[in-house]
Design a protein around this nucleic acid. Structure first.
Lengths: 151, 151
DNA sequence: GCAGAACGTTCCTTTAGGGAACTATGGTGG
DNA sequence: CCACCATAGTTCCCTAAAGGAACGTTCTGC
């Protein structure tokens, strides 16, 4: 399909998309996060083409999001686990869940629930300001040029 | 490419991807968010194919993320603006920026900065628990089956 | 009435995804 | 020893989606 590469743009959204923006990648990440770490598990759970799954896993390992780890040497068997870089990407998944729950779940309600370890409550993520702790949404900020902005 | 449709999966991540998971869609949303609301502006800013831009805008309007609004009747000219549904999707963009800044920005620093209206500080989003207000990351929760989970 | 601007549409080429068959390695049961 | 199974990919063909350039349409202004 000769797709444009986003990685070279001076935009953290584009660069994040370069890592996990391809179709299936976030769902692969989700599977690994919930413990479906093996090729066969993911392939059956997602219904993804084995070819594409191979390509995506290789890319995510190259990018340092997943680690390919041998869990059996004889026969050689591998599983994929999250790195720190990959674990932090899961924040993104949680925000996607939040939006999907609000706007696409319908009357049936959310497919999954989160229980927060710290308080034990069923809850969801809420974006807050790292400086003052108040809610911080897209309408609550000004966007300013930063040091990494070229051109 | 005969791509698998994610919209029917019982997963809020998959359903969110169905809306904005295709290549370019998040970047289109970003452009609209920062005020580049017209076809020509987006096409030139992104370097996207006019064909694909047309398709994506139509889809995002169908999904209720953008609204196609006439800003001039003679000649007829249109711009695209965020709906409430689309504005909330920008939370997702902010989290993508946060991850991209941390893991892909390098020595040059982040391309853009956020100033929070409420406190005036340069800051970034931090996911917190809607129940107790403490930080809530992927490692801080248990995932439980919810009412909308089929099968 | 010709140029130019804004917003698409059409056509062709290239490439990526889907899906099924095949390969490789090393058990396990008889 | 041989058939059979499980895991983890690889290869092949077909279809559909992205890129890119040219074209179309509707109006304004000179």
């Amino acid at each position: 399909m000769q797709r444009t590469q986003f990685g070279d743009m001076a935009c953290s959204i584009a660069r994040t998309l370069d890592v996990i923006g391809e179709p299936w990648s976030p769902l692969i990440l989700r599977d690994v996060y919930v413990g479906m770490t093996r090729f066969e598990q993911m392939q059956q759970d997602l219904g993804i083409s084995r070819k594409v799954l191979t390509e995506r896993l290789k890319w995510l390992v190259e990018q340092g999001v997943l680690e390919r780890r041998e869990y059996s040497s004889r026969p050689p068997r591998f599983e994929y686990v999250l790195t720190a870089k990959g674990t932090e990407l899961c924040d993104l998944l949680m925000v996607m869940v939040r939006w999907g729950d609000r706007w696409t779940a319908g009357a049936a309600g959310p497919p999954v629930l989160y229980r927060h370890h710290a308080c034990g409550q069923i809850a969801h993520v809420e974006p807050r300001c790292s400086a003052c702790g108040e809610p911080m949404h897209a309408t609550d900020i000004d966007v300013l040029p930063g040091p990494g902005l070229s051109g």
